[in-house]
């Protein structure tokens, strides 16, 4: 399928409506363009995609710190009260019998959010620098980030279930810690960031360099 002249819709002055899918030609003049059929706003590219994505990535990165430092769960027994952060939970689970669980928690809660943040930052930086290298791989990376996003809520789910189920007062009770809020924020913000990112930007430069029609 390698062709000498890749043309993007933007290049051809065509806009696709995100609402009803109608393809329309860009209109002349200033102002915002609207879909002639459903009146949704039309953009050639997601507006301010890079800036928005950066904002969400930074916000998520900020939240990632307290999410890992603050306790996500408080276990109260009549004689003790222990607060555990995500990493403490991982360490706690790290035993000959339950190490797989520990690995799952570690990957789902620590590695994936971090990997997502790094991946998005990488995509943003490369796009801003107008890189044309490994565009295809970068697109795949983006798809993975977008797919994985929702599964990062695993920890929040576990926490919610445990808190709801383990209410054996006065013997034992579990309360959510402040960390879980930040953890959820990380997950949500990275999802929004991934959504804000316009993968077409990866290819735009490629087209500038390669696909200039002769």
């Amino acid at each position: 399928m390698m062709s000498a002249a890749w043309r993007s819709a933007a290049h051809l002055g065509l806009l696709s409506c995100e609402g009803c899918g109608l393809l329309s030609r860009a209109a002349e003049g200033a102002g915002e363009t609207h879909c002639p059929r459903c009146d949704a706003k039309l953009h050639l590219r997601k507006p301010n995609s890079i800036q928005r994505t950066w904002a969400f990535v930074i916000a998520a990165a900020i939240c990632y710190i307290p999410a890992n430092l603050l306790p996500v769960m408080t276990t109260i027994t009549p004689f003790s009260k222990s607060e555990d952060t995500i990493m403490e939970g991982v360490v706690l689970l790290w035993s000959p019998s339950s190490w797989p669980l520990s690995v799952v928690v570690f990957i789902a809660s620590v590695t994936i959010p971090l990997a997502k943040l790094l991946a998005l930052s990488y995509l943003l930086t490369t796009v801003q620098r107008g890189s044309i290298k490994s565009t295809r791989e970068r697109t795949r990376l983006y798809r993975i980030v977008e797919f994985v996003g929702r599964w990062s809520m695993l920890d929040v789910f576990v926490d919610t279930f445990v808190v709801a189920l383990v209410q054996l007062q006065p013997l034992m009770s579990v309360e959510p810690g402040p960390g879980v809020v930040f953890f959820a924020a990380v997950v949500v913000l990275t999802m929004i960031a991934a959504d804000s990112f316009d993968p077409r930007l990866i290819w735009d430069q490629d087209e500038v360099n390669h696909g200039q029609p002769s």
Partner: peptide, 21 residues
């Protein structure tokens, strides 16, 4: 949008509506 490429290549495609900025 001043430098829009050739948009008249697809005469059958409707033109997007425009609102004042």
């Amino acid at each position: 949008m001043a430098n829009l490429p050739d948009t008249n290549g697809f005469p059958d495609i409707p033109e997007a509506a425009r609102s004042s900025p």
